[in-house]
Nucleic acid binder design. Structure first.
Lengths: 366, 366
DNA sequence: CACAAAAATGTGCTCGAACACACAAAAATA
DNA sequence: TATTTTTGTGTGTTCGAGCACATTTTTGTG
């Protein structure tokens, strides 16, 4: 009689457990007729488990699709994670300013989870500064580093150092080829060049000339700009019918004024300028000072200087590279990997947002 | 001698605690010279605390900016949260299909946190079905409901019922005025009309005519379409110089063919059509069958039918309303409120994405 | 001053996962 | 058969917050 009661209770317990929503190690232990220690050993493949127990537990884990409670795991874990964000000094290039907002958002959001995010700036014109800052970060032995690899060679080298020290490396905005880097967040630059080209094609007269202007102090952005140029040219290559001639002007920032004026004077038919960096506003300054009109402009990035010109339709379009979102996402991937064992996406390409004076506001709020 | 040792130890413990990164209730108790029970009572304003203890603890909490460990809190809490998502049946209107993807993403992401998200569909043409589904959901007594309030009056009413039952109500895509609704995720529709207008202005000849086409079976979307029309007209109202005449054609879907043909035959100068719903592809069908050419099209939403036409540049632009993101965000806000006590944003307006054939791909991946 | 009532404070258990440690059973060696 | 060694298994503690309950201290009243 007692044994029959026992079996009824066992059955009830089975039914109860099988209809439950979430299973704990304890539940699985009960169902498999072993202790939670054994279940734990199976889950973590620590061995010291008989074949019989192993099979029983494994089968249950699969049937039930057991997912450990992330809260409990993390509570026990009770580790403080350090993440360092390394980027160019926003005071030297305001393109990077929104990154700080993205970082602060992540800092605020994750601080109570025991995540420490620290910011480090290097000079975008100095490889030395890049290396120094990264060496400093290396000494801090954080759990992960998120960086913008402006300088290709040096970035590959620092990534290796980080990996040797067991530090996870993610990058954003600029891409480098390196096995040491687990994640890249950015944009398809070739495609963004094509987007710019299509917009340009739409707003300039047929058979007129358009020019790609590369502005850069030190040509760190060389790869960035090249890819955009390629995309831009690729698009126009498909439209021999309309025959918009595409030329290129590459200048350092300090020579921009002189070079641009000369170029425009010797090419009177220019109807559109595609600026491959965030410095479109500098071009506008020069055009206005010299009374060039009817030249359409397409550029990059929602800097305050550009925003004003977009609002007044002096710049027709800006392509938004979302540095804030890039930073926030790059950090979020790392944090969620640490806290919840989520997989880090090896490559995340953000949308290529077309911004004009009308939808600008909707991007500034976000 | 013993007392001096004691004080040194106390001092050391103070220094240690003040330099620590994260504080626990226990730490604060030690610093305030009380027990964790007292600290707990102060934090939760449960009273039964002397003024002296209250002040000491309060001061410390502020100094330290104490944030409870969300993992521990949630583990103890150990509640399963039920959220119901109520939206129009995607089989009846494919606009809603991406919502399922957004929901699945949220389901996958939060299931191990003890969050249950269930989907419910109603017929977008039947207020009865809307009410029935919501009554069914009401009986399930979930913790929160995220819904698309297609029918204004009925939505206000169901929102009230939910609130009376202590169920949190969030809405997305469509907006209603109701104190019972804690959160809205969507887009500024007036502004999106302006965006469409600016794009249209850019691609049609001066002094040509453009037409706003509203296609709807039952005019549930009336408010939606009206706001878009207002924005569109508002923009063109600012450009009396170019004098693009704007007219409107409102038709039920079944009359579209007849009405549109008639309209276009009696208005030969039409150079652009702005379709205020996701049904731009239906207009294209008709234009192609009747050999209308050189009419530019701007519409909404990345339906597969629209996508093909955008790729081949038959549709010039689509404005992306991101139903997937809207759904995912709406759910995320609720989940993070339950799990981590985060504040739910009362209003979140998503960017008004301009999509053409070149940046289309970058949106489809996301 | 006694003694009850009220107010203040402290203790101990729970949530689920992870892991150290203790202990038992089986296998190998003396 | 007695003993070590190996292999397998179970128990108990920890993480931090939250809450029930126990205990101490204070206050009020006869």
């Amino acid at each position: 009689m007692l044994s029959s009661t026992f079996f009824v209770m066992l059955l009830l317990s089975f039914i109860y457990l099988l209809y439950m929503k979430t299973y704990t190690i304890k539940d699985i232990a009960k169902l498999a007729g072993v202790s939670k220690g054994t279940v734990d050993r199976v889950i973590h493949k620590r061995g010291k488990v008989s074949q019989k127990a192993f099979d029983a537990v494994t089968k249950l884990l699969e049937e039930i699709d057991y997912q450990p409670n992330p809260m409990a795991r993390n509570l026990k874990n009770n580790k403080i994670y350090d993440i360092c964000l390394v980027l160019p000094n926003p005071e030297e290039d305001s393109f990077w300013e929104p990154c700080i907002l993205g970082a602060n958002q992540a800092i605020e959001e994750f601080k109570s989870f025991g995540v420490n995010i620290k910011l480090f700036f290097y000079s975008p014109t100095s490889t030395k500064s890049f290396q120094d800052v990264n060496n400093k970060v290396l000494k801090l032995k954080p759990d992960a580093v998120l960086l913008t690899p402006l300088f290709y060679k040096e970035s590959v080298s620092v990534a290796k150092n980080y990996q040797l020290a067991g530090i996870i490396v993610s990058i954003f905005n600029n891409q480098i080829d390196s096995k040491q880097v687990v994640s890249f967040v950015g944009q398809n630059l070739f495609q963004s060049g094509r987007v710019a080209a299509q917009l340009m094609h739409m707003i300039v007269p047929e058979k007129s000339e358009v020019v790609i202007v590369h502005i850069d102090e030190t040509f760190n952005n060389a790869i960035h700009m090249q890819q955009k140029e390629k995309g831009f040219r690729d698009y126009f290559g498909e439209f021999r019918g309309t025959n918009n001639n595409v030329s290129v002007l590459s200048v350092k920032q300090e020579n921009l004024y002189q070079s641009l004026i000369e170029f425009l004077k010797s090419n009177q038919n220019i109807s559109g300028i595609f600026v491959t960096t965030s410095k479109a506003y500098k071009v506008v300054e020069i055009l206005q000072q010299n009374n060039f009109k009817n030249i359409k402009l397409i550029g990059y990035d929602l800097l305050t200087e550009n925003i004003d010109l977009l609002k007044s339709n002096i710049i027709s379009f800006l392509i938004h590279q979302s540095p804030k979102t890039q930073t926030y996402l790059g950090l979020t991937y790392l944090v969620e990997h640490f806290l919840f064992k989520k997989e880090i996406p090896s490559k995340k390409l953000l949308p290529i947002d077309i911004v004009n004076s009308e939808n600008l506001g909707s991007y500034l709020e976000n």
